[in-house]
Computed example of a mutant assay.
Amino acid sequence: MNDSTLATRIKERRKALDITQTELAERVGMRQQSIQYLESGKGNRTSFILELAKVLRCDPNWLLNGESTEDRA
């Protein structure tokens, strides 16, 4: 299991895709401040996890828990 947090996974994936917080927020349907809050580790709002995973092109389980569905096989 990965020791990273939801905050670091979102931030690292967003930066790897060269997406700003504002762009991510617009694509997901959130406010930029909400993305900033998530990335700071102060929030863990998971109601947008599927949308975040889609935009960040990653497994929602990995984004949420640090595990992908392939890790469970």
Rank of each mutant, 00 (worst) to 15 (best):
M1T: 04
N2M: 14
N2Y: 05
D3C: 10
S4T: 02
S4D: 10
T5K: 11
T5H: 12
L6W: 05
A7L: 02
A7S: 06
A7F: 00
T8W: 02
T8H: 00
R9G: 03
R9I: 06
R9C: 03
I10T: 00
I10D: 01
I10F: 03
K11F: 01
K11N: 02
E12V: 04
R13W: 03
R14W: 00
R14S: 06
R14I: 01
K15D: 05
K15M: 09
A16V: 00
A16Q: 08
A16E: 07
A16G: 12
D18T: 02
D18G: 03
D18I: 09
I19Y: 01
T20H: 12
T20M: 09
Q21L: 03
Q21Y: 06
Q21R: 12
T22L: 15
T22F: 14
E23Y: 04
E23G: 11
E23P: 12
A25V: 04
A25N: 10
E26K: 14
E26A: 07
E26I: 05
R27H: 06
R27C: 13
V28A: 09
M30N: 01
M30I: 02
R31C: 09
R31W: 06
R31Q: 03
R31K: 09
R31T: 05
R31E: 10
Q32G: 01
Q33N: 07
Q33I: 06
Q33C: 00
S34C: 11
S34Q: 05
I35Q: 08
I35Y: 12
I35L: 10
Q36K: 11
Y37L: 00
L38Y: 00
L38H: 08
E39P: 11
E39Q: 10
S40G: 15
S40D: 14
G41V: 02
G41F: 12
K42Y: 10
G43F: 04
G43D: 10
N44W: 05
R45V: 03
R45Y: 11
R45K: 10
T46R: 14
T46G: 13
T46E: 15
I49F: 11
I49E: 15
I49Q: 12
I49S: 14
L50W: 00
L50K: 02
E51C: 09
L52R: 02
L52D: 02
L52C: 00
A53Y: 06
A53H: 00
K54F: 12
K54M: 11
V55T: 05
V55D: 13
L56S: 07
L56V: 07
R57S: 15
R57N: 15
R57D: 14
C58S: 05
D59V: 09
D59C: 09
P60Y: 05
P60A: 04
N61V: 06
N61P: 13
W62A: 01
W62S: 02
W62M: 08
L64N: 07
L64I: 01
L64R: 04
L64A: 10
N65D: 14
N65P: 14
N65Y: 14
G66I: 02
G66R: 09
G66E: 13
G66D: 14
E67L: 12
E67P: 11
E67F: 13
T69I: 15
E70N: 03
D71P: 13
D71C: 07
D71E: 12
R72V: 07
R72S: 08
A73F: 03
A73M: 07
